[in-house]
Deep mutational scan, measured.
Amino acid sequence: TLFEALYDYEARTEDDLSFHKGEKFQILNSSEGDWWEARSLTTGETGYIPSIYLAPV
């Protein structure tokens, strides 16, 4: 399942991933609670993103 960003997000740590509204992600690991490891389909970068900023596509 792909997810789309509902809002912009600016990374706060080196493990976080910055993204823009409308960016799409492949989720790599969603077992860490509210922060999911994801790969951006726009940039190819991976990192942790807040799941509350996402909606399934």
Results as ranks from 00 to 15, higher is better:
K24F: 10
I52S: 15
G44W: 07
P56F: 07
R39M: 14
D8K: 05
L28Y: 06
E14Y: 10
L54Q: 01
F25S: 00
S30I: 12
L54R: 00
S18C: 03
I52L: 14
L41S: 04
I27V: 11
D34M: 12
A55W: 10
T43C: 02
E10G: 06
R39G: 02
Y9N: 02
T42I: 10
P56S: 07
K24E: 05
E10L: 10
T42A: 12
E23K: 00
D16I: 14
I49C: 03
S40C: 06
D16M: 14
Q26P: 00
L54P: 00
T42G: 07
A5P: 00
S51H: 11
S18L: 01
T46L: 08
G22M: 03
I49T: 02
F25L: 05
S18N: 05
H20S: 14
L2I: 15
T43G: 02
E23D: 14
Y9D: 01
L54W: 01
E32L: 14
Y7E: 10
N29Y: 07
G44V: 01
E37Y: 15
S31N: 11
A55R: 13
Y48L: 14
E10W: 09
E37W: 15
S40W: 01
P56K: 07
E14A: 12
W35G: 03
I27M: 03
S18W: 03
H20E: 10
A5F: 01
I52E: 11
E45Y: 10
G44F: 06
Y7K: 09
S51M: 11
T42L: 14
L41Q: 08
E10Q: 13
D8G: 07
T43A: 02
D15L: 14
A38W: 01
I49P: 00
E23P: 00
H20Y: 11
F19M: 14
G33L: 13
I27P: 02
Y48P: 03
K21E: 05
E23C: 04
L6H: 04
P56A: 10
Q26N: 07
Y53P: 01
S30W: 13
L54E: 00
S30K: 14
E14H: 12
Q26A: 09
E32D: 15
F25I: 02
L2R: 05
I27E: 00
Y7I: 13
D34T: 10
T43W: 02
L28A: 04
K21Q: 08
G44E: 05
E23R: 00
Y53K: 04
G22P: 00
L28W: 05
Y48G: 04
E45K: 14
D15V: 14
S40P: 01
L2N: 05
P50F: 11
L41H: 06
N29E: 07
G44N: 08
P50M: 13
L6T: 06
R39I: 14
R12F: 08
L41A: 05
E14D: 14
A5C: 02
S51K: 14
S31Y: 10
D15Q: 14
L17R: 03
Q26V: 14
E4H: 08
Y7P: 00
W36P: 00
W36V: 07
D8I: 02
S40Q: 06
L2P: 04
D15H: 15
E4R: 06
A55G: 09
G44Q: 07
T1W: 13
N29S: 11
G33N: 13
T13Q: 13
D34R: 06
S30N: 12
F3Q: 03
Y48R: 15
Y53W: 08
V57K: 03
E10P: 05
Y7R: 10
W36H: 01
Y9I: 03
R12L: 12
T42K: 12
E32Q: 13
E14N: 12
D16Y: 13
E32K: 14
E4S: 06
D8H: 06
R39C: 09
V57C: 08
E23T: 07
E14W: 09
E4A: 07
E4Q: 12
E23L: 01
H20G: 08
L2W: 10
T43L: 02
W35L: 09
T46D: 03
T13C: 13
S51Y: 10
A11D: 02
L54S: 01
E14R: 09
P56N: 05
I27D: 00
R39W: 08
A5V: 01
Y9P: 00
E32W: 11
E10D: 11
V57L: 11
E10F: 10
L6Y: 04
A11P: 05
G44R: 04
K24W: 15
L2S: 05
I52M: 13
T13R: 14
I49M: 02
T46P: 01
W36L: 06
F25H: 00
G33C: 09
E32H: 15
D8L: 02
S40V: 05
L6C: 06
S18H: 05
Y9S: 03
L28H: 04
G33H: 13
K24Y: 12
W36C: 03
W36T: 02
D8V: 02
E37R: 09
